[in-house]
Design a protein around this nucleic acid. Sequence first.
RNA 1: GCGAUCAUAGCUCAGUUGGUUAGAGCGCCGGUUUGUGGUACCGGAGGUCGCGGGUUCGAGCCCCGUUGGUCGCCCCA
Length: 421
Amino acid sequence: MSKDKSAKIPTPQAVRGTQDMLGDFADRFAHVVDAFERVRRLYGYKRIEVPVIEPTAVFARSLGETTDVVSKEMYSFEDRGGESITLRPEFTAGIARAYITNGWQQFAPLKVATHGPLFRYERPQKGRYRQFHQLDAEVLGSDSPLADAELLVFADQLLKELGISEGVTLTLNTLGDAASRDAWRAALVDHFEAHRSDLSEDSLARLDKNPLRILDSKDPNDRPIADSAPDIDAYLTGEAQNFFGAVTSGLDAAGVAWERNARLVRGLDYYRHTAFEFVTDRLGAQGTVLGGGRYDGLIEALGGPPTAAVGWAAGIERLAMLLDEPKADLLNVIMAVEDDLAIPAAQNIIAAFRLNGLSADMVATGSARKRYDKATKINAHVLMSLRWVDDQPVIRTQSATQNDVLMQAQKILDGLGYHNA
RNA sequence: GCGAUCAUAGCUCAGUUGGUUAGAGCGCCGGUUUGUGGUACCGGAGGUCGCGGGUUCGAGCCCCGUUGGUCGCCCCA
């Protein structure tokens, strides 16, 4: 048979920054989501689903129309009706929109959780993809520091249950209320203006666009200036101080370790009070595993009623990378069908196993003599072989240990009238 | 948007200062052996050397471009 190479169909490539997952990593991913779903129920967070696509205005308005994020880093397109649509780059804005448009105020305070894909047009690197996935938890319609503390305890328990709290630190700061924040911001601008000549080029640009960001600059020349900048503490109103104190004492009461990071900031104006990140040095340049804070100004910015809210999100891929051991599902039974004549018997048995809740699979392709060898390479609790002797299936089962699965399988076989050789 | 680095079989890789017909291990398919917790041996299939140009008598190797991966900067909702 001759192949006409000029007629070869070119294979489309995957879109840059997207991932196909199989095996080990897919198992880790699923394990993270399973743990999240389990813990979220323990804290009484309702599962919600929100659309992957939203009108562009949902994100443009919440993030500020002119920021780099909106102008360069969103997947936006016009649909056939001429409306500007954006693939969600985060959960919070879409959930806030849903809160307003569905009248969820009636349920306030509302505790919700979700997870799924997000899209950002960024240059891919370790722990950063164009389609990525997050876990998300929010409390809408609560201005109580109890909500902040609960969300943090929830996050901490999730990381502990995933076994990755070692080497991950909760860093915490307060941005105060609107008055505190404005006063601090003005003081920072004064400070940086005074050191203008020593700042890096990047930080000079930040001074105009987003002065708080100079605080976490990585440029070694900026560090002394950033480190000597005033903390927010001197500018906090009494109310803001009390709020932060209530959050930290809630953490202490629940036994959650935390560190103050007075340099931890958020660029957007709608953030108030609590800001936090669980950080690690095990993920290269992408140090944040889980982050969030209080965004009391957001729902109003989207045209809703003034509504206090707080939440966090965590990258599933990043959490999956930190897991120690792959958590693969171990198959209960693997069957080596060593003769094609035994296939009907194998189908009969495997159907019974599955109906009775035992996971099972068979090897019945390739060289008949080598099927057993193949089956031994598939990790399973029980290895079963079917041969065909004197018009009868000859069955052997074996297991590394006498376990429940073997006994269950034996019972099912007995019920079908098959007997071990 | 900027920079570094990489791209050879399904996978992991080797491939000499540019020189016959591009190799290995694993995996896959088949045969022989063994005959039951991963046997051993033999054979086979599988490659536009990411893609497109260029230099050269000759390019997997050198040059330019491009696409993609990886890592960092920027950004970080």
